[in-house]
């Protein structure tokens, strides 16, 4: 076991992890953050995507010991104190960008990364930016609609 210190969803955590553990395992099994889905486990489907120091990363191919001194954000960390959804989540709901929901948390985290740039993107660019996610329900059109909407909304507020 190795001791690591990481900030998870704003809370500093010191925890013992097995060196062989993936960050997906640690977040799910030790912290109960089950928004982090285990799909392919080889970095292809994007269901386990979280933000590590602001960058979207597949946690199934990321060793937990590498998360030492890093800041992790998962969908659980987006919760507002009043329980309200963030504009990104609301866009996914209202655009019906959720079918079975398995790919949704990962896509939301990528959306957080994209929106954080404050830039606008064409639909084609957005397709490329979400290419690390697989939606087995093939609901890509609505996902892109939600993405387009939220990118525009964010640009209006904090546009570059």
């Amino acid at each position: 076991m190795t001791i690591i210190n990481m900030t998870v969803n704003g809370v500093p955590r010191q925890m013992a992890v097995d060196e062989r553990e993936s960050l997906a395992d640690t977040l799910r099994n030790r912290l109960g953050l089950t928004s982090v889905k285990k799909g392919c486990e080889v970095g292809e489907c994007g269901a386990c995507t979280v933000l590590i120091d602001g960058k979207a990363v597949d946690t199934c191919i990321y060793l937990s010991l590498w998360a030492d001194c890093k800041s992790i954000l998962t969908v659980e960390g987006l919760n507002r104190p009043d329980g309200e959804l963030t504009p990104i989540q609301r866009a996914f709901v209202e655009e019906a960008a959720v079918q079975c929901g398995f790919c949704t948390p990962g896509l939301i985290m990528t959306a957080v990364e994209i929106v954080g740039t404050g830039k606008t993107y064409t639909r084609e660019e957005l397709r490329r930016l979400i290419s690390g996610h697989l939606c087995r329900c093939t609901g890509y059109q609505n996902i892109l609609n939600a993405m387009e909407r939220i990118v525009e909304e964010a640009h209006k507020v904090a546009g570059k």
Binding site: G43, T49, A56, V57, D58, T110, L129, I130, S131, G132
Partner: peptide, 9 residues
């Protein structure tokens, strides 16, 4: 190469 999450690592 790969996709965005892969290129981040």
């Amino acid at each position: 190469a790969g996709g965005p999450q892969l290129r981040n690592v």
